[in-house]
Amino acid sequence: MTDAPLSRRSLLVATAGVAGTALLSRPLGLVAPVMAAAGLAPTATMRGGANNYRPNAPMVDRLGSGFFVRGKVLRAGDGAPLRGVRIQIWAATVLGGEPDPVNHGSVLTRADGSFELEMAQIVPNFGQPHAHLAYDDGAFQTVFLRPVMPSARDTSVSADFVLAPT
């Protein structure tokens, strides 16, 4: 179950999350209506997504073990998978809090646009078990995600990016 690839459900969940935050995100101009009409719409930044962000998290093989943060990075419009894109990940885990450097790391996407980071078990922080993911490297518009785990006992969480060129 934890090995399931990007599911339609997670996409729908992500879409619902985006819809829920549409009120706030729209003024930020992250949703480009023209792009949406043309094809795959870019992912909007989630509320609170950038909280405790420390830019340029170091590239890591892993940050602990037992928990997986996964996702896929696609290009807006044609939906082409993006390879070699740096995704920064951080979360509160059993090793420490969200601002703690031990819980910050970056990974690159594979040829199919997928990425995965193994880290220590995420624990609820400020009331919800959640992770933070960022694309913030300039070639595409910056996106911050904040997926919430359905259960604090989950051993993985996924979040997908559809990036719009700047």
């Binding site: 935050t21 989630m46 509320r47 609170g48 405790n52 809090g97 400020f126 904040r146 919430v148």
Partner: peptide
């Protein structure tokens, strides 16, 4: 976490 607390106080927290 100043970020999370300010978000909450300003009613923009998720």
């Amino acid at each position: 976490s100043p970020d999370d607390t300010v978000d909450a106080l300003l009613l923009v927290s998720p």
